[in-house]
Design a protein around this nucleic acid. Structure first.
Length: 294
DNA sequence: AAACAGGGGTTAA
DNA sequence: TTAACCCCTGTT
């Protein structure tokens, strides 16, 4: 059947989605936005989304989702993979700049996943002063520790809810190897229980107000706040600047060392409201080509 | 084999 | 503005 320009078929418990454009699973899963998708030997990816485990793969303009059905596509995948957004338009708006043009060529299939706000909040607290393989291990063990068993054989775990983490002890959380970040996870979980900070609430504020509100939570500084806003789809006019983005901006735009403030200003004047997307293309480009190293 | 360097945001001083 | 925080990986 046709659903908003995509052709859907169910075959033997596998859903195929035809006519995907501006879409590459490697670009999407390796651009630093998510921590729960693992690349398997055959190039497919295994992950957990909204309390369900899934395996996805891609051949050209067809996306395959195992153990999924048309209703799941309508309920989950269309939104999760941001399939209602025209990335060709975003890319051509950004491509006026020759440096961005090259970054987009590298990561042409990037999409910003619409991930769960709570999961992003905790995941990016864990990401501070940390590297991706370790963040993935910590998120996984936190899920095994406090999340619910899911999957056909119960071999996977959903991301733990706010109540489960708020009720944990510091000693319990230390098992997931988050180190000094454990006290931030616990502190933020307990503060969040009053329900004063929500994705909807932040979405209604201006971007700077939303960032400041998030920064009242322990373990959330400016970079982590911007990641949370961007990767949960609350705000797209943020430019999370980690070491890789700093390096790529210095190497390609400034041709010198640059401070965080001037990087933010340049991103704003060059990319405007699309700077969140620009950051993703630049991050992927920088990491893949090790820009700014050596 | 054991010791050490490197990586990486936020917080508190 | 700068040191301390924690743990894993890679190198000596």
């Amino acid at each position: 059947m046709d659903y908003r320009g995509y052709w859907l078929e169910e075959k033997g418990g596998c859903l195929s989605v035809k006519n995907i454009r501006d879409f590459n699973l490697t670009h999407i899963f390796e651009c630093g936005q998510c921590f729960r998708w693992i690349r398997l030997q055959d190039g497919s990816y295994q992950g957990v989304v909204r309390g369900k485990s899934a395996r996805v793969s891609q051949e050209g303009d067809v996306l395959y989702i195992e153990n999924s059905c048309i209703q799941d596509f309508i309920d989950i995948w269309f939104d999760y993979f941001d399939l209602g957004t025209d990335y060709s338009g975003i890319k051509s708006a950004l491509e006026k700049d020759p440096i961005m043009r090259e970054a987009i060529e590298t990561g042409y299939g990037i999409r910003i996943l619409r991930q769960d706000f709570w999961e992003m909040l905790i995941s990016f607290i864990i990401s501070a002063n940390n590297m991706i393989p370790r963040i993935m291990k910590t998120v996984e063990s936190l899920s095994m520790l406090k999340g619910e068993r899911i999957g056909a054989e119960g071999q996977h775990y959903g991301f733990p809810g706010m109540e489960a983490l708020a009720a944990a002890t510091l000693e319990e959380l230390q098992q997931c190897k988050a180190g000094f970040r454990c006290k931030y996870i616990l502190g933020t979980s307990r503060l969040m229980q009053d329900g004063k900070i929500t994705a909807e609430g932040l979405g209604g504020m201006d971007t700077d107000g939303a960032r400041k509100a998030l920064m009242t939570l322990p373990g959330v500084g400016p970079k982590v706040a911007d990641c949370i806003l961007l990767f949960s789809g609350v705000k797209f006019d943020v430019f999370p600047t980690d070491v890789w983005v700093k390096r790529v901006m210095e190497e390609l735009y400034f041709k010198r060392e640059a401070g965080l403030k001037e990087i933010q200003q340049l991103a704003d004047s060059n990319f405007g409201g699309l700077k969140g997307y620009a950051q993703q293309y630049l991050f992927y480009h920088a990491r893949l080509n090790r820009i700014g190293m050596s």
